[in-house]
Design a protein around this nucleic acid. Sequence first.
DNA 1: TAGTGGTCTAGACCACAGA
DNA 2: CTGTGGTCTAGACCACTAA
Lengths: 250, 250
Amino acid sequence: MGTTQLESVPEPKYWHLKTVLSDALDQDFAVGEVLPNERELAARFGVARATLRQALEQLELEGRLQRRRGVGTTVAPPRVGVAVGSAQQGWPGEGADGWEAVDAVETVPAAAVLGVLGTAADEPVHTVRRTRVTQGQAVAAELLYVPAASVPGLSAIDAPAGPARARAVMRELQRLPLEGQDRSVELGSARADDAKELDRLPGAPVLLVTTRYFTAAGTAAVSVATYRADTCRLTFGDSGVEITETRAAS
Amino acid sequence: MGTTQLESVPEPKYWHLKTVLSDALDQDFAVGEVLPNERELAARFGVARATLRQALEQLELEGRLQRRRGVGTTVAPPRVGVAVGSAQQGWPGEGADGWEAVDAVETVPAAAVLGVLGTAADEPVHTVRRTRVTQGQAVAAELLYVPAASVPGLSAIDAPAGPARARAVMRELQRLPLEGQDRSVELGSARADDAKELDRLPGAPVLLVTTRYFTAAGTAAVSVATYRADTCRLTFGDSGVEITETRAAS
DNA sequence: TAGTGGTCTAGACCACAGA
DNA sequence: CTGTGGTCTAGACCACTAA
């Protein structure tokens, strides 16, 4: 062989591996198909298992693969488009959009949430847990924080903890005149309880959607929704149309 | 020692480590402060460096840390809120929102983009590159795809490649009557060129914001914006208010 | 040149799912 | 029980930054 210029740009092995695997997924595998196990794949590509795993991790992050302990690695279906910001605003629980009330208790939110709520640490806050299911799959877990001061009528209705109580809180909320809302999206990692709800391991990448609901009196409620980042594409449709297909990055 | 019940729930070391580090960051470190190097931290906690790195990775993902090769690990400032969906719609380039045109060429987009654009592979498409800077920091890189058919007036203006040409494409776009737009957000990993633009390593986690712009004739343009997931919080303000503080997950 | 984080290896053991 | 992915170790070398 001649003095071929090589290694001038030493691309990391896992990066190159990811590209190769990605192409293979496009050409030789169908959705749902199981890949060879990690030890065999590593051997086949002549790399250590850790290196192979680094490539698989990236592909999972991009929603191309799905890995389950004790089962194997399968080719993931395209991401599910989940409507988050519909054209018209509304209180949580209005309309049948896949959310299901799970529970409601009175807690002291984390400091970060208190900052968004704008309440003090000793104020009682109703915390409603909801789950969102789309196409038979749990895609999001939500914690809805409602200061007791926002729903004074609720104290009379002392429903027992559970879905009924959760619905009672939201019913009271919906009586208020909604003045506005705003929303933010950021990357996070799943807390242990959310991970369990979403059938993922703790620390799995998630999209955190924080929504503030305003009345004339100020911030009436704050929702922190945790979406599975691997399987979800959040859609904010200002028009009625839906994006049908997308694929993450190169 | 008595038979203390231990290890009943064998929490992974890196997970526990992350919690410990997270608390330490809150209490003993200021923003911008540099942490001890990885080898020392690993030794201090009695774990392998790889395990320590797993914890650091998570914290970086949550925007708590910033790691730079050859420099060190520093405590990251709170995430920057970046306005993405303002109240009123508009073509890209309207208003001074931190975007800066870089370049424009005629390319064949990736298959995934073609699907969203709804064009064929042989149709010429102007591809505009833009960069978004907020508070002195590059937060996003965008590729704006404009089918030549959308801007028939452009062929006359044969500006040379470069910022001037990019601005020419957007100027033509802004002449069209915008009928609507929709947007989606998903997790991805940075392509090599975007990573360079954002001062990150290839594969770094990013938030992909895909926007479709409609005229009466159909999809006139598609924008794929790549935001740094570690430093950015995307805001969709329906009201004029801004979320001031947030922290990702527990 | 010294010190940092980034990559990679070749093992080991563990937790979990399913037959 | 077997086979899977998840965790962890103790090294090594490389790429980059800044003095």
